[in-house]
Amino acid sequence: MSRQPPTAPRPALIGKVLMRCAGQCAVCRAWSDRTVCAGCLDLYARPQPRCWTCAAKLPPGLTGHARPQCGRCLADPPPLDRAVAAVDYRFPWDGLLQQFKYRQALDLRESLLERLASALDAAGAPEPDWLLAVPLSAERLRERGYNQSHELARALARRRGLRCDPGLLLRVRHNAPQAGLKLDARAANVRGVFAVEPLRAAQLRGTRVALLDDVMTSGTTLFELARVLLDAGVMSVQAWVIARTPAD
């Protein structure tokens, strides 16, 4: 039987106070009725031309292409039909995502989702049948207390009327963190890590899936999950992420 992610714990009161005071922008601390104020969004969340299949930032001159791709994706196409990233993984989003991921800063969720929703609408990304989060291992769940990607996925799925079920994708073994590994080592590190819940595979067969993660670095985790889904009979797979790091 698949393990259900635990309900996200509420941040401790002292943590909330230290992270940000109510009514202030989480970035510049100006008084604001939003977690990230309009001025900071204008400065740090401007749309960027991105690769169609890995969301890496592209030079502005490629924006005229119908489906622009980076050199890496042209040489070795990934198993994604589309990849959409809301922002670059740099100030202030890197710090905000770290707070959301490791410090239970759930008050940042709506601002992060607003950025992703805007990027999806601007990109014209097709609506999938399922929106599924990248699963965590049991060890990582115990360590963090909740799956940050599932917290984002279930809220976005509710907004867009999509199906979202944390029991459909499994992380069948605990693997080392991807950070710090070279590209080849990252691919080997996630090989064989994921699976579709065998008793429920029929629910995904013939459907379109979007995978949601907070940060996309090399893409190897999302690519491996996409391959697993395609092997299980899924028709197409997209990747939706809050932030994309610079291409390696």
Rank of each mutant, 00 (worst) to 15 (best):
E127A: 11
L108F: 03
T217V: 02
P126H: 03
M19N: 15
Q148N: 05
R67Y: 13
L229I: 04
L41W: 14
G233L: 04
V237W: 10
A179E: 09
V87K: 15
T35E: 15
R72K: 05
A201H: 06
V215I: 07
A122W: 12
W31M: 11
A38C: 02
A138N: 07
G124T: 01
A66T: 07
A226Y: 12
P78R: 01
Q238I: 01
G233E: 07
A75K: 03
T220K: 04
L13Q: 02
H174Y: 05
T207M: 08
T53D: 15
A201F: 09
G71C: 06
D76H: 12
C70H: 04
P49R: 05
D76F: 02
G233P: 13
P6R: 06
R227V: 01
V209A: 08
Y89M: 03
L13F: 11
R29L: 10
P77F: 08
A247P: 08
A45L: 00
P78G: 04
R82L: 08
Y102M: 03
L112Y: 07
E139P: 02
V234H: 06
S236F: 02
L74G: 01
A105E: 03
T217F: 14
P246Y: 08
A195R: 13
R20E: 10
A188R: 12
D213K: 06
R109A: 13
A239L: 07
L168Q: 02
G167D: 00
M19L: 13
V36E: 01
L225I: 14
G145Y: 08
C37F: 09
R103M: 06
S32T: 07
L199D: 08
Q148A: 06
G95C: 04
G161K: 08
V27K: 04
V17G: 06
A83H: 11
S111P: 14
C73E: 02
R205D: 06
R227K: 11
W93Y: 15
R10H: 12
D107H: 15
V193W: 09
L170C: 05
N175I: 07
W52H: 13
L169I: 01
P177G: 14
R142N: 08
A105V: 02
D88Q: 12
C25T: 11
I14W: 14
L120P: 04
C21N: 11
A83L: 02
A122K: 04
P47S: 04
S32E: 02
R115D: 02
C21R: 08
Q24D: 07
P166H: 03
P92I: 09
V196E: 05
L162W: 15
A66H: 11
L225E: 02
R67T: 12
A56R: 01
P128C: 03
L204T: 05
Y89W: 13
P47I: 04
D94S: 15
A123C: 09
T7D: 14
A157E: 02
A85N: 02
L113P: 00
P78K: 00
C21Q: 12
A117F: 11
P198D: 08
V27A: 01
L43N: 09
S137D: 01
